[in-house]
Amino acid sequence: MSNRYLSIENVDMTFHAKGVESQVLKGIDLTVDRGEYISIIGHSGCGKSTLLNIVAGLTESTSGAVILDGKEVNSPGPDRSVVFQNHSLLPWLTVYENVALAVNKTCARTKNKAERHEWIIKNLEMVGMGHALDKRPAEISGGMKQRVGIARALAMEPKVLLLDEPFGALDALTRAHLQEEVMRIQDELGNTVIMITHDVDEAVLLSDRIVMLTNGPSARIGEILDIELPRPRDRIALADDPRYNHYRQEVLRFLYEKQRKVESLAQRRGAVGEKEKGEKQKDEKEKAKERARAKA
């Protein structure tokens, strides 16, 4: 049902700093359907977050356009709410007030006071934070903060929900738990989501499509992988699913063979000094597999 809800059209991004031009993104073309869950994966520094910021309107692209629901995006707005990696809750407001700030600002015309209150509570309950309304961010754990961040973003009823490595700063157990929550909420609400991640399992588990970026500078879309796993997905059942493992390997192959991260000169000199280059390559692959195994 390709109805081109969101399209990113030929986006380039070049930063100028101290007279040095550096192109980060080159010719990014992507269309996203309504209700689709897209992950953008790539090595750190490849420009994933820049791409997300362009869609959010926080960064202006050098050329190209982002069109959402028939309108061009050129400034940030509540129709593209962002869940930031480090939660970005305002520490002087309570959990309730943080969500209320967003709701009162974005739903002032559509809801009266009582309805707004109900809506805030409903969203906080959806992420399982109904018990901590009057707590301040400093008093709750990292995972809880991220839940509140998600509730705040959902409460704005965005056309696209943008997740910038939302679970990156969390420990593995909390992360798994939150991924489940996000899947449940996604089943319930059917939001259109773009998520930045560097976690292969997370991408395969949550996404309908995985967009893989090549290494920067001038990162492009390397491959797009359709994940045709039935929902609801269960991570334990999927662990033995050949399709799941196939998808995971596809992404791993892209990241660690085709787009092996080129390390900085100093690091490479230190490492290559001891080993043959070929051996090192093998080593890298081994490590990647190990990492994948550890996560499964």
Binding site: L58, F84, S88
Partner: peptide, 18 residues
Amino acid sequence: IPEDYRNVARVLRLNGME
């Protein structure tokens, strides 16, 4: 003021006084 707070304000489209 952390850039994150500014970004939150921009996404919410807070006006100058807010």
